[in-house]
Design a protein around this nucleic acid. Structure first.
Ligand SMILES: [Zn+2]
Ligand SMILES: [Zn+2]
Ligand SMILES: [Zn+2]
Ligand SMILES: [Zn+2]
Lengths: 132, 132
DNA sequence: TCAATTGCGTTATGCTATAACGTGTGCGAT
DNA sequence: ATCGCACACGTTATAGCATAACGCAATTGA
């Protein structure tokens, strides 16, 4: 998916996520953007849908929240699997990718005769700084 | 976590999940159990909390839904990682486990100096019967 | 007996996400 | 030009998921 020019709302949501320390829920984003004229959840969700489609943003299923993609390349991990560590202490999210896991998962799933459309890998725990 | 005797509510929720074809949301479970006297979401959520703790039930984060554990052993996958394929067509959920993925993930996470508490792996797609 | 724990029931509330409707704008085809 | 279409947008209402806070009852163990 090539990334077209973002619309005003998409840019505002992207900016909010990019400048955030950690993940944000759609409603948290909404609150951050009220001063820029946002009034309703759909304004956020519609922008997020596009940003997810362009690969600029990831959804964290276990948090019902969103983060900006930190992948160094051109968000071309369409084919690849994206994984996250999520610290319960400080909220820090780290995105990472690994071909070995991709290939192993792919083989296991193929053995089930299953066709993958989207893979979610999220690891909850504590980062080095927050470990008790 | 040893599995104590289930209470009445826990048994009812467990039964509903065990006899279901696929995953169920807490509110769907509630509706199924109204005839057995269930009246409020908390009755379901409290039972689910315990069943999750005992390892008899898994939560599917990408669906906000729950499934009975199909693991053949005594639900002793406390140490292990549980993964799921989830068919968007028929709703079928297949639970599986793989040591190679566990070890690879474990190594990657350790390299981040991160302490894992819970790992979520969910693969959305289409099963063999439902593949377009 | 007394305190602590656990499960239960109820009401109310909060958070997450989408349905349904209408408006406006740009742009190619007729 | 103007028609038709696609797309973004704004608004209101509603649906779906989850928990807070209160009180009561049964169990257990000191
Ligand atoms: Zn990314
Ligand atoms: Zn941390
Ligand atoms: Zn299991
Ligand atoms: Zn299927």
């Amino acid at each position: 998916m090539a990334t077209p020019q973002l619309t005003k709302n998409q840019s505002l949501v992207m900016g909010a996520l990019a400048h955030s320390e950690g993940p944000m829920s759609a409603y948290t984003i909404l609150d951050k953007l009220r001063d820029q004229g946002f009034r309703a959840p759909l304004q956020v969700y519609r922008a997020l849908d596009k940003l997810l489609e362009y690969g600029l943003v990831h959804r964290l299923e276990s948090l019902n929240a969103f983060v900006a993609c930190t992948c160094p390349h051109d968000h071309e991990h369409d084919r690849g699997v994206t994984a996250f560590t999520i610290c319960e202490g400080c909220g820090q999210v780290t995105e990472f990718h690994d071909e070995a896991i991709e290939e192993r998962l792919s083989a296991l799933v193929r053995a089930q005769n299953f066709k993958t459309e989207k893979t979610t890998i999220e690891i909850r725990g504590h980062c080095g700084s927050c470990a008790a």
